[in-house]
Amino acid sequence: MVISTQVLFLSFLALTCSIGLASDPSPLQDFCVADPNNPVKLNGIVCKDPKLVEAKDFFRSGLHVPGDTNNSAGSQITPASIVQIPGLNTLGISLARLDFAPNSIVTPHTHPRATEILTLLEGTLLVGFVTSNPENRLITKTLNKGDVFVFPIGLIHFHQNIAHRPAVAIVAFSSQNPGIVTIENSVFGSKPDIPTNILAKAFQTNPAIIANIQSKFLR
C-alpha cells in the first residue's frame, strides 16, 4: 500500500510538472536575442553574443502602416514576433496588427502554442471560438472600438468584420512563436492530399465534392 501511494504521488507530480511546462520556458538571463544564422538547432533559437546586442534587436517600426487587404480573405496580419524582433527570444510573448477590409474575415484557425488576446482599435468585429469535444460550444461576441477578447490556447477561432468600413486590431500572444493552423488549408490543402474518401466520410458528403474543394487550394 505504501509503495502504491508513493507511485501515485510521483505520477501526480510528473503530471503537474508537465502541465506547468506546457508553455514557453522562463528565461534564465536578462535576454537571449535570437541568432537566426547560428547552425545549431534546438527548441527555440540560439542566443546572440550579449556583447553584440543592440537596441535594434528589441525594436520594430511600421505597425502604424495599414496592411494590404487586397486578397481573397480581405484581411492582413502584420506580425511583431521573433522574426521581426529577435529580442523576443525566450520572453514568451509576441503580437501582431490585424487589418480588415469591409465585410472581410480571418478564417477559422488555431494557435497551437499560445493564448491570443485581441484589442479592437477601430471598427466592428464579430469574433468567436469553439470549445473542445464533445460540447463544441460556439462562444461569440460583437466587438467595438476599445473592446478586448481572449481566445484560449489551441481552440478554433475566427474574426469577421461585420461593418462596411475597415477595422484594425492588435493581438498579443503568450508565446514568441504561437504558430497558426488554418483549418481549410490543413484539411483541404495538405501536401499530399488527405484521401478524398477519408474527408468524404468525415464531412458526410461524397468524394467528388471533396476533390472539387481540394482543387481550389494552391499546391
Rank of each mutant, 00 (worst) to 15 (best):
S61P: 00
R113Y: 03
V187K: 01
T16N: 08
L138W: 00
T131I: 00
S81T: 15
E122W: 01
I170H: 10
S72P: 00
P207M: 10
L28H: 12
E54H: 14
S186G: 12
E122R: 15
N197Y: 14
T90W: 05
S18L: 15
G74C: 02
K48H: 04
G154Y: 03
S174H: 08
G74S: 05
S26P: 01
K141A: 12
P207Q: 06
V130C: 03
P39G: 02
V127T: 13
I117M: 11
L218W: 03
L21K: 06
L98R: 04
K141G: 02
P25F: 05
I82T: 09
M1R: 06
T5R: 10
P39A: 04
L10R: 15
V187S: 03
F9E: 13
H64G: 15
H159P: 01
S132Q: 13
C32Q: 06
L28C: 07
N177Q: 12
L125C: 08
I213D: 02
H64A: 15
L95P: 03
P207A: 08
S11W: 10
G128C: 05
S61K: 15
T69D: 03
T196N: 13
D49N: 15
N197F: 12
A163F: 04
L91H: 07
R113M: 04
S81P: 00
N197P: 00
T140E: 10
L126N: 11
V33A: 11
R137P: 00
V130I: 14
F188Q: 00
L15S: 09
G189R: 00
S72T: 12
I153E: 08
P27S: 07
V65S: 13
V130W: 00
F203A: 13
E135L: 14
I180D: 03
S26Q: 14
T119K: 08
Q6A: 14
S18F: 11
L143C: 09
F31W: 10
L28P: 01
A169D: 03
S4N: 14
L120G: 10
N38P: 02
H157F: 05
T182W: 00
P112Q: 05
N144L: 15
L42I: 11
I153P: 00
D99C: 10
E122Y: 06
F158G: 02
V168W: 02
M1A: 14
D57Q: 11
I162F: 07
R219Q: 13
A55E: 15
G44F: 02
T205P: 13
I183W: 00
I93T: 14
C32N: 07
S81A: 15
N70G: 03
N133R: 13
A211K: 10
N144Y: 15
K51V: 12
L118H: 01
T107F: 02
M1I: 05
N103I: 03
F31M: 10
P192Y: 05
A34V: 11
A169E: 09
T196V: 13
I153M: 12
L95H: 12
R97T: 10
L98G: 09
A73K: 04
I153H: 11
L155E: 01
S72M: 08
P102D: 08
F100G: 07
S186C: 05
L125H: 05
K48V: 01
E116K: 03
N177F: 06
S104Q: 03
V33K: 09
T140A: 09
L91W: 13
L121Y: 08
P152T: 06
P152S: 06
L42T: 12
D30W: 06
S132A: 13
Q76D: 14
K145H: 13
A14V: 14
N185D: 05
I183H: 00
V187Q: 03
L126Y: 02
P178V: 01
